[in-house]
C-alpha cells in the first residue's frame, strides 16, 4: 500500500476509536442527529403506507362497510348505556376515597404513536416511534397497547423516540403473578427473552413462591420498579422450571402484546 493509504487508514482508525469512546450522553446526541437524516425516508414510507391503506379501503365491499357500521353503532349504544353508570361509580369512588383519605390516581393520559422503524441489528429489541420532545415525551415513560405493556422510552429526540421492548435486557420490569381471583401469587423480574427468535415469550426471574405459580396465571406490572404503573397486563404464565440446581425458579411468560406485529402504541404521559 502507498503511504497515503496508510495515512488514510490511520485517520479512519483514530476517528473510529474517538467515536467508540464518546460519553454515552454525547453518543446519544450524535445518534439522534445522524438518525434524523432518515426522517424524510420515514415520512415517505409512512405516506406510502397510508396511500396503500386508502387504496385497500377503496376496494372494501360496501356490504362489509355497512356491516361494520352497524356493529360500531351497536357497540356505541351499549357504551352509552354503561357511561352514566360508570360516571356514578367514579363519583362514589371519589367520595369514599376522600372519606378514608385515599390518594386519587390521576386520569390516564396517553398519546398515540406510530412505529416508524425497528432496530436493524438482531441482538436488540427496540423500535422507534414518531413522537418526540415536542410532543412532551421524556425518557422512561411507559409504552403500551390496549393488550398490555410494550416497554419504555429510552431515547428522545425532537421528533422521534426509541422504545426498548419487553425482553430486552435494558428494560427490566418488576412483575406480579395473579391467580384467577386476582390474588397475588408471586413476584419476579422480567429482564430477558425466553427465546432469541420468538419475541412473544419472556422469562420471569427471581420467583420466591414458585410452587404456587401455575400455567395460565396472569402476569401484571407491580409498582416496585418505580417506572411502570401497577396493574398493566404483561402476559400469561406458560410454564415454570427450576434453574441453578433448584435454587431459583424461572417462569416463561407469553406476552399479551404481539411484539413483531406492532403498528401503533400508546405512550403513557406523566
Amino acid at each position: 500500500m502507498k503511504r497515503r493509504h496508510y495515512l488514510l487508514l490511520a485517520v479512519v482508525v483514530v476517528l473510529t476509536l474517538v467515536i467508540l469512546n464518546l460519553s454515552p450522553r454525547t453518543a446519544t446526541q450524535f445518534k439522534l442527529a445522524i438518525g434524523s437524516l432518515f426522517l424524510p425516508l420515514f415520512g415517505l414510507a409512512g405516506s406510502g403506507q397510508q396511500v396503500a391503506e386508502k387504496a385497500g379501503n377503496a376496494v372494501v365491499p360496501r356490504k362489509d362497510l355497512l356491516k361494520q357500521i352497524e356493529q360500531l353503532r351497536r357497540e356505541n349504544a351499549e357504551l352509552k348505556v354503561q357511561l352514566p353508570r360508570l360516571a356514578e361509580l367514579e363519583r362514589q369512588n371519589a367520595h369514599l376515597s376522600a372519606q378514608v383519605g385515599f390518594k386519587q390516581s390521576s386520569r390516564l393520559n396517553i398519546k398515540l404513536a406510530r412505529i416508524i422503524a425497528r432496530d436493524p441489528a438482531n441482538w436488540w429489541r427496540n423500535v422507534q416511534i414518531d413522537l418526540g420532545k415536542r410532543d412532551g415525551l421524556r425518557v422512561d415513560l411507559p409504552v403500551r397497547t390496549a393488550e398490555g405493556l410494550v416497554g419504555r422510552v429510552s431515547e428522545v429526540s425532537e421528533t422521534r423516540a426509541r422504545v426498548v421492548l419487553l425482553g430486552d435486557p435494558t428494560c427490566p420490569v418488576s412483575a406480579t403473578v395473579r391467580d384467577a381471583l386476582n390474588n397475588v401469587v408471586d413476584q419476579g423480574v422480567i429482564k430477558s427473552p425466553a427465546a432469541v427468535l420468538d419475541e412473544s415469550f419472556v422469562e420471569l426471574n427471581f420467583l420466591r413462591n414458585a410452587t404456587a405459580v401455575k400455567p395460565g396465571q396472569l402476569v401484571v406490572t407491580s409498582d416496585e420498579g418505580g417506572l411502570f404503573p401497577k396493574g398493566i397486563r404483561i402476559g400469561e404464565i406458560v410454564d415454570v422450571r427450576p434453574v441453578d440446581f433448584g435454587l431459583v425458579h424461572v417462569a416463561r411468560v407469553k406476552l399479551a402484546v404481539r411484539m413483531n406485529a406492532l403498528d401503533d402504541v400508546w405512550v403513557m404521559m406523566p
Binding site: 493509504h5 473510529t16 467508540l20 436488540w124
Partner: peptide, 27 residues
C-alpha cells in the same frame, strides 16, 4: 480506498444511529 473508508464510516454510523449498538461499533 477512499470509497471503502467512506462506506465504512458513513454506513457504520448510519446503522448504529438506528440501532441500540454503541455508536461506532459497526464501523
Amino acid at each position: 480506498l477512499v470509497t471503502v473508508s467512506l462506506l465504512a464510516v458513513c454506513g457504520g454510523l448510519w446503522f448504529d444511529a438506528l440501532s441500540a449498538n454503541r455508536l461506532g461499533v459497526s464501523i
